[in-house]
């Protein structure tokens, strides 16, 4: 059996097949290594989403752009301060010290975006919210995480699955939602 494989493998077709298989394995390995080496930038602070959502703060309070336009937006430090200046613990908690320092020094947090798409994809939050999607449909349950995590790989297949599902039998809607030009331009 093994011998037969070797015989086949040195035939012209066999060589090509082996090369292709080798390339496939090699690229899988390279892809895997690439994935592990590409850590996103660390977040500046371990922002506890669960705590804030648990307090009943709406997503749109800090990310108001989501209902209005393409980008949900990140809150400015002055927005944090709006609530936190009322809280005594702000002055004493070691965990809140980075925010206090930032406020006093006039510096800012530089966030590492979590849910992101490549630059050739033009995502717009507004129509998704208008279509009745909730934040957690894509971004996961924020009551369960501290810093935001992506519950799924945001790739084109994932987008299109949902688009096809939502379009249902509506032909015009399906055309619009699966058109290349809807996201890529």
């Amino acid at each position: 059996m093994i011998k037969r494989f070797f015989v086949w493998a040195i035939s012209p077709m066999g060589r090509i097949a082996v090369v292709i298989a080798g390339m496939f394995v090699f690229s899988l390995a390279a892809f895997g290594i690439y994935q592990t080496q590409q850590n996103p930038n660390p977040q500046p602070i371990q922002f506890p989403h669960n705590l804030h959502v648990g307090l009943g703060i709406q997503c749109l309070y800090c990310h108001p752009g989501a209902s209005k336009g393409p980008s949900a937006g990140l809150p400015t430090i002055s927005k944090c301060w709006g609530c936190h200046q009322q809280i005594a613990k702000t002055q004493t908690s070691p965990k809140l010290k980075p925010m206090l320092d930032a406020m006093n020094n006039g510096t800012n947090f530089v966030w590492a975006p979590v849910a992101k798409v490549p630059e050739f994809v033009h995502f717009n939050h507004r129509p998704h919210i208008a279509a009745g999607l909730n934040c957690e449909n894509c971004h996961g349950d924020m009551t369960k995480v501290t810093i935001a995590e992506n519950p799924q790989v945001m790739n084109m297949g994932w987008c299109l699955n949902c688009h096809r599902e939502r379009a249902g039998d509506d032909e015009a809607k399906l055309i619009k939602l699966t058109d290349c030009g809807t996201c890529h331009y």
């Binding site: 930038n41 400015t76 430090i77 800012n108 530089v110 966030w111 975006p113 992101k116």
Partner: peptide, 8 residues
């Protein structure tokens, strides 16, 4: 490697 700095 995008980082986002919001307005102050």
């Amino acid at each position: 490697f995008v980082s986002r700095e919001p307005y102050l």
